[in-house]
Every structure is written in structure tokens, then in C-alpha cells.
Computed example of a mutant assay.
Amino acid sequence: MTMIKWTLFAALAAAMAVPFTRPVIASEFADVLDTPALRSNIAAQSTLTGLARAGERLIAVGQRGHILYSDDAGQHWQQAQVPVSSDLVAVHFATAQQGWAVGHDGVVLHSSDAGQTWSRQLDGRQVGPIMLDYYQHQLASQPDDSGLQARVGDAQRMVDEGADKPFLDVWFENDRVGYIVGAFNLIFRTDNGGLSWTPLLEHTDNPNALNLYALRPVGDDLFVVGEQGLVMKLDRASGRFNATLTPYNGSFFGITGKPGAALVFGLRGNVFRSTDGGTSWNKIDLGLPLSITASSVTADGRIVLVSQAGHVLVSVDDGASFQIQTHTALAPVAAAQVATGDALVLAGARGLRQLRLE
């Protein structure tokens, strides 16, 4: 079976891909999709891989379904109620109240109370059947379409394989319209806040079904990045994600920037910047050969990148150059989020920590 990324942090820290498995507790199988996340006094010190802002509140997600929230810029954390114990990878809030989290086993969770409680909207047991029904209906009206025939075959394989495909990122334009992306070119859209999802696999320039690691807007442009240098930009008129060429064929893990300057980042310190909406990309030399795994933007417009080892790099010129912040205690990092003022919260294998930007 093809090996795919467990989470951005775990893949980099272990320098290998890890297959998705479900735990066996004692000698009796317990499906993580039916097992609520256990409460833990040390949840904030466990492996956490995603961060987001919900208004002034911070939200963190991670292993075993742990979701935590902080109302004091990351100094103290409380654990949320979560209906699954699947590993969670990413989280995004469209408003201060409405948020979504995604992860392993095709899980999509929703919160309408600023992250205190969560409900399941989708899981991997539903993903395959949704895809199969959608593409079968399309094929019925276009029976000779070879592309649709292939989509039906792919969907049937997903049904047969079960709930093992992860979603790796989520982003909502507002409290109704949102996208989720994941392994093997999985990409879905909702127009009703996650009550139903429509597959968009045929709307991507990704014929090799490469893993999609992240999606984020920069200004009015929505980008998706993935394996083998894949960078796609949404053409809103056609609804298609069109590939844009970059000078790099390694994995990109994230997107950041501000209107007029988009950056994609990934393996071995590779960062590329575009000032023309993704038409062309120029390499930014960080002087650091370590993979970049996290980013954030401050209220005053500074762009922050963080390496897999915890180096913090800050740009004051819209991403044209970066300076490494000194006196930073290094530790593996999977996600970063600017809190209030100059407080930066980092999440990783050692849990959550806060530092001040220089």
C-alpha cells in the first residue's frame, strides 16, 4: 500500500512516511471514529499539529482528537469536548464562533461555540460512498467519458479500502463556503457550512493524484500546495484549480503572505515568492537548509516562518528577505500562530509554547 504523510510534523521529525493505523486497546478493537477524545491533564504537552485564531481565542488540535483553546494568548489552555480520537492535523475558523478541524480517517469536525465543543460532519466511512454516488450520477449522463469511468473506479477503491484516507487542511471563505484537501488529490467543497460535501477531484491539475498538503488564500487568490512542487491556484470563474510552475519539484507544506506577495514553503528550506498572483516564482534564500513547516503573519504585516527544528524567521519586507530570530529555544514545530501583540504560539511534539517576536 502506498505510504503517505502522517502529519507534517511527524513526517519531518521521523524523516519517513508512516502508514495510517488505528489503535487496539487491550485485546479489543476500539474504532477511533466512535471513541471520544480522552481528557488529559497534560494535553497541552502532547503532540499538537494545528493552530488557528477564533476571534481573540486560540485553538490547537493534535493527536488522539485533542483540541484545546486559550483565552490568554496561549498562556493557559483548556481541553474541548471532541467526539472522536482520530489524530487531527489542521483547524480553521471562518468567524469567531464557526470553525472546522480535519485529520486522519477522513474526519471533519465542526464547532459553533468558538471551539469549546465539536461535532462530526464527515468521516472516512462516508467519503468513498459520497464520491462513488457523485461520479456514478455524472457517468450515467456521460457513459463514454473515460475520465468519469476512472473517477468511478477510484471511488469504488476508496469504498473498498475503508476509512483510512486523511484530510490534511481546511479553509472556509465564510461560514458557508469551504474546502478540505488531503491525500491522493482528495479535495471537497461545501456551500452549506459542511452539512454536505461535493468532490472536486476532476477540477484540479493533478493527474498523478499527488497528496495535497495545504490550502490558504493570499489576498484574493486561493492556493493549494502538495507533493513534487505542486502549486495550484483557483480560477474562480471556472471553479478549477490550475497548476502554476515553480522552479522546485520537492514537497511544499504551506502557503502564507499578504496581498501582493504570496509565499510557498517546504522541504530543505525551500521558499518561493510571487508578486504577480502566482504566475512566476522567485526563490528566497533563508540560509537555513531545514524544512519550513509553519507560518503566520503579524497584525503589523510581518511574515513569520518556522523551521521543523523551531527556528523562527521574520520578514519586514513582505517576504523578500528573512532574519532568524535569536535566543529561541529549539524544539520541533508543526504549526505557528501569532496571538496578541508580539506573542507567537508554537505547536509540536512537545506541545504548546509561547515566545515573543523580536
Rank of each mutant, 00 (worst) to 15 (best):
223 F>L: 09
251 S>R: 06
234 L>T: 03
265 F>R: 00
272 F>P: 06
240 R>K: 07
258 K>D: 04
235 D>K: 04
242 N>T: 13
294 A>N: 11
256 T>Y: 05
219 G>F: 08
292 I>D: 01
232 M>F: 08
240 R>F: 15
241 F>M: 01
247 P>I: 01
233 K>F: 12
236 R>L: 11
283 K>M: 03
284 I>D: 04
285 D>T: 14
216 R>V: 01
286 L>F: 05
238 S>C: 06
217 P>I: 04
286 L>Y: 01
261 A>H: 10
273 R>D: 04
282 N>H: 08
240 R>H: 10
253 F>R: 01
279 T>G: 15
235 D>S: 06
274 S>L: 07
242 N>L: 10
286 L>C: 06
220 D>N: 11
273 R>H: 14
304 V>I: 14
219 G>T: 12
272 F>I: 10
246 T>Q: 00
303 I>Q: 10
217 P>C: 08
228 Q>M: 15
277 G>L: 08
287 G>W: 01
299 A>Q: 14
299 A>N: 07
224 V>P: 06
266 G>S: 06
288 L>C: 07
237 A>Q: 09
270 N>H: 14
297 V>W: 00
224 V>L: 12
292 I>Y: 04
294 A>L: 10
265 F>I: 01
226 G>A: 10
222 L>C: 10
252 F>K: 03
227 E>W: 12
248 Y>N: 03
252 F>E: 03
283 K>C: 02
224 V>N: 07
248 Y>A: 03
220 D>S: 13
265 F>L: 02
241 F>D: 00
245 L>P: 11
225 V>H: 02
299 A>P: 10
217 P>Q: 10
242 N>M: 13
229 G>W: 15
281 W>D: 11
236 R>S: 14
249 N>M: 13
277 G>F: 07
222 L>G: 09
291 S>R: 02
233 K>A: 14
296 S>L: 02
